[in-house]
Amino acid sequence: MQSFSEIDTTSKRASKAAGFSWGVAEEVGKNMRNLEMFGLPGVKNLNLYLKKIKKIPSEKLKKIEKKNKPQSKEFCPIYCGTAFLDNCKKLESLKLIKFFNVSYPLLLLPFLSRSSDIVGKKISVKYEKNNFLLNFDKTILSNNINNDKTISKAKEISIEFLENNNSFSTKEWKELYRLSEETFVEETESLKKKGAGAGLTDND
């Protein structure tokens, strides 16, 4: 088995060899380490993508807007991801962002996962019947974890910043809190005097 450090180094060097700058290649190395650690086939997708762009380079995007369509055939997931990561604080206000025709969309995920951590919000990603929930770069949840089919192009990718809302109702919270109160001790007059750190009056 390859270590994550080997995956990082080799992915970085391969990306540089395929034409990316060292700085972007460093991002790819870190991303492949993350994807593989999350159990997603990063190396497999990167290998296929780098072979593809040696023949036909993908399009580099100039600016991210609410809807992004490539001028030529396909967007590069690495350039899209780098731009998204660098602009994520600004993009958060757009809430829902769409990219059309992106090569090997899995390679975009780790950039979005890191953006989730920077912005402090979960991000939902959808493409080609795959749903992912990115949790602050700690985990990536997917509805399709056992599907090792490689998607070479996503016609449409939806990226949504999710608000930090509770996943439970107020009623459910109150019920749980009430149960937690059963670990507290009812205070007698004596305990009030002796058990507290502060004095009985704080006006002295």
């Binding site: 700058s21 460093e26 991002e27 780098t82 660098d86």
Partner: peptide
């Protein structure tokens, strides 16, 4: 810096 890097990714490192 994000905008600067869009046109100067050779200096990202």
């Amino acid at each position: 810096v994000a905008n600067f890097l869009l046109n100067n990714d050779d200096l990202r490192h």
